[in-house]
Design a protein around this nucleic acid. Structure first.
Lengths: 181, 181
DNA sequence: GTCTATACCAGGATAGAC
DNA sequence: GTCTATCCTGGTATAGAC
């Protein structure tokens, strides 16, 4: 089971990158927690960036799929509703939520990363397609905020009595209301 | 006019930190653009973090003032409306918008910074005070999103035909609607 | 195929000369 | 008020042990 090492590197890296930030986490820290030297990481990943690429691949694939689906829909209220529900559904799967959180917290550090550039492109097209160019600006902003609201749990995370599911459901409610502008 | 150097360091740093990110910007870059060596910067600022502290001081003071005012208000719809309008007004002054943008883009890199910790505390208390603890979760999320929406211009920045003012006005409109949940 | 030892260069920081 | 010299840490590259 030598395959394990690669996976364990990713797990440790994801946790540390999220907790401390991408640039603040050194390869030495990751290697130490794994019980190897930092050079060993270079056998499994070409660069530090490459570790990130491995992490976001699945998330990128998912969101690309969502865009492909949305492109095939007419620009109707029902399609927008479906988009919000599907997006929320993706986030609900815990693995993707972790990666989404990691991405949110390291936008600037990773702004040049090809995978992240692609994610931004996709998000931009998704939000753009949620309105017609002729719609009032407030409408366009409101609808864009809908997707963003689904990530909002992090500001509510302080209230320990709430479950992840309760937060998701309430966020979806707010997001759907934003669509009606 | 030796005071100039300090100010010029701050201007260059703010621009580079915002464009490239805090950690991605080296002191050597800043020093080079200013025409001195990086050691010279250490005469004006004790550390790299210290440059940030100088930048955010004004913004922190403003937001503290806003919190003090909001604390003195009853929890009424009108007070919340006023809060949104005052917050939007602060952002409108270009200097603060620049700094707000810088802060948004470097949350993770600066997560340990005392000034930033304080800002997060203030934002949390502001959003918490926008609802009663007994309010439905969706209501609390919706009202929290109101303040956040005022920063939303960055996702709209791609549409070159829009002025900053138009974006602000439309964002305020969406924010006020979020209060009515 | 998996890892260690070692070296290189860039970046933040400090001490001390001018 | 600014510079030189120096130190430590971090990402990266390679040679070679097993």
């Amino acid at each position: 089971m030598r395959e394990d090492t690669r996976t364990r590197i990713q797990e440790i890296a994801l946790r540390l990158f999220t907790e401390q930030g991408y640039e603040a986490t050194s390869l030495r820290e990751i290697a130490e927690e794994l019980g190897v030297t930092k050079a060993a990481l270079y056998y499994h990943f070409k660069t530090k960036d490459d570790i990130v690429a491995g992490l976001v691949d699945l998330r990128v694939a998912e969101i690309e799929e969502l865009l492909a689906w949305f492109r095939a829909q007419p620009r109707t209220p029902e399609a927008r509703r479906q988009l919000v529900l599907r997006y929320a559904d993706q986030l609900k799967r815990s693995r993707y939520m972790e990666i989404a959180r990691f991405l949110e917290r390291n936008q600037t550090a990773l702004r040049e990363h090809p995978k992240l550039l692609r994610m931004r492109e996709v998000m931009l097209e998704l939000t753009t397609r949620m309105s017609e160019p002729g719609d009032p600006l407030a409408t366009r902003i409101s609808r864009s905020m809908a997707l963003f609201t689904l990530h909002a749990g992090k500001w509510m995370a302080h209230d320990e009595t709430l479950s992840e599911d309760e937060i998701t459901d309430a966020s979806v409610e707010v997001a759907l209301r934003l669509l009606e502008a």
